[in-house]
Write a protein that binds this DNA or RNA. Sequence first.
DNA 1: GCCGTTTTCGGCCCGACTGTTTTCAGTCG
Length: 575
Amino acid sequence: MNNEQIAGVLRQMADLLEMKGEVRFKVVAFQKVARAVAYATDDVEQLASEGRLKEIPGVGKGIASKIDELLSTGRIEEHDRLVADLPDGVLLMLDVSGIGPKTAYRICDELGVSTLEGLQNAILAGRLEVLPGMGKKTAENILRRLYRPIAKDGRIPLGKALPIAERVCEAMRPLVPNVTEAGSLRRLEETVGDIDILGTSDDPAGAIEAFVRLPFVDEVLAHGPTKASVIVDDAYQVDLRIVEHESFGNLLQHFSGSKEHNVILRERARRMGLSVNEYGITDLATGKVERHTTEEEVYQRLGLPWIPPELRWGTDEIELAEQGRLPTLVALGDLKGDLHCHSEWSDGRDSLETVREHARAQGYEYLAITDHSSGRGVANGLTVDRLMEQVERVHDLDRKADDGFRLLAGSEVDIRADGSLDFPDEALERLDVVVASIHSAMTQDRERMTARIITAMENPHVHVIGHLTARHIGDRPPVELDIDAILAAAQRTGTAIEINASPERLDLKDTYVRRARQLGVRLVVSSDAHSVLHLPGLRFGVGVARRGMCEAGDILNTRPLLELLAALKGAAPSP
DNA sequence: GCCGTTTTCGGCCCGACTGTTTTCAGTCG
């Protein structure tokens, strides 16, 4: 069972306990651990087998035994008992935004409804609004959510959310000059639940008023004097929060989250006799409130160095900050080049000349052309002959331009189902950069897939494994593999693992990057651009690297050309 | 259920908004 699946069961436990009317703190304990498991760097099943579950923050004797039970039997007895005791369908109701555990229980219990369709019929028949504590408005709101589901865990991919956020900021900037993204978007999570935007103003209510009237706002979910939530493009929730100028640092810190990070920070503040909220920091002894215009001041007041948003997971970052052990994260400007890019020779859009020119304009020293191999029929993959022709062409362009920029000859070569490669070694050895990736037979079982990738890594000509798990976020699940075995093999063979920056992939994902880094596995950040328009997308990959705690030294393509080439050759030891 | 610069017991982060309420529970982040 993977971490995400375990976290899902624990979240359900929290919901069920809450519906059962269990004390708040017990519910919160399960919620906390669910998050910790979802963000755990280690494989929780592995931890359990070594009896180390209690190393996960928030896990004590009780929850540890629940996780052990889940992993050994596939179920948790208390979970089953709760489901049996509660009315049918309660968990289903929770998927509707606006329905929490209390309402879900009442709907199923008092209306005898157990499906979303049944709920819809009950509302249309006027049976919900007559319940005490409910009303016409509540019924209407729930009905609307049923017709246009904005699922609570229907996450928006980063690549889609960022342009929307930028459009909203653009529209608000005349009124709110310091308007900026916050929340999971600022932390560069791979998907975001909603789009958080904030700013300061002399007239918060006026700014909020203008926000809800923006032309692309389809629906207003909530509208108060300092905060509003709306739906744009018929599907995406955008929250705007405005406070007065002197609290900008407090507001930005508060709404950049994560929620768990803030909980730990506020608990820490309490021990210092301080209380933290989005307006300032209150000295509990004197009642005096300090406001801060920057985030640095907020953290400083709490005795901490500023913590980059990408590290605010609510795991161990505050401990690291206290100990002065925060890494100096890699930045986009540290990258000297890009090692994965396609041209019109395979399935890319642009010519070698165009790609070269744009990469140079991007400020890079080098760019690897890595078109597909022939195994990918659909992607117009190169035969060995065309590959050799392309290598000549690539070297020609550099000779002619004589501008110090270096186009590297490469390939994104297919890893076949048996782990062999699409090109013979004699062809691969003529290349500067060989990226080996999986594009087929993705349903292989864990053992075969793991062995297949390790076989590819053992080929001395393979420098990098591209988009390791082949997932498409929200679309195609990752392939099954033994990540620890893969990372160990990468370390042993010196093969680098790619952090693919394409927003629909972001593969390796952040938790795996953390593990890879701990193991000393070499990493590269690559755009996998199929058009020059994708080249700047490298920033998404840098975001993942930063979330993975990488410093510049952890990423091979922060090195200047000669050092990079030496390192890549080093990655190909003779068998 | 978890946890410890007062603690192995008694605490456990903070606030906005909505809808249905005469003071607050539920939901959300």
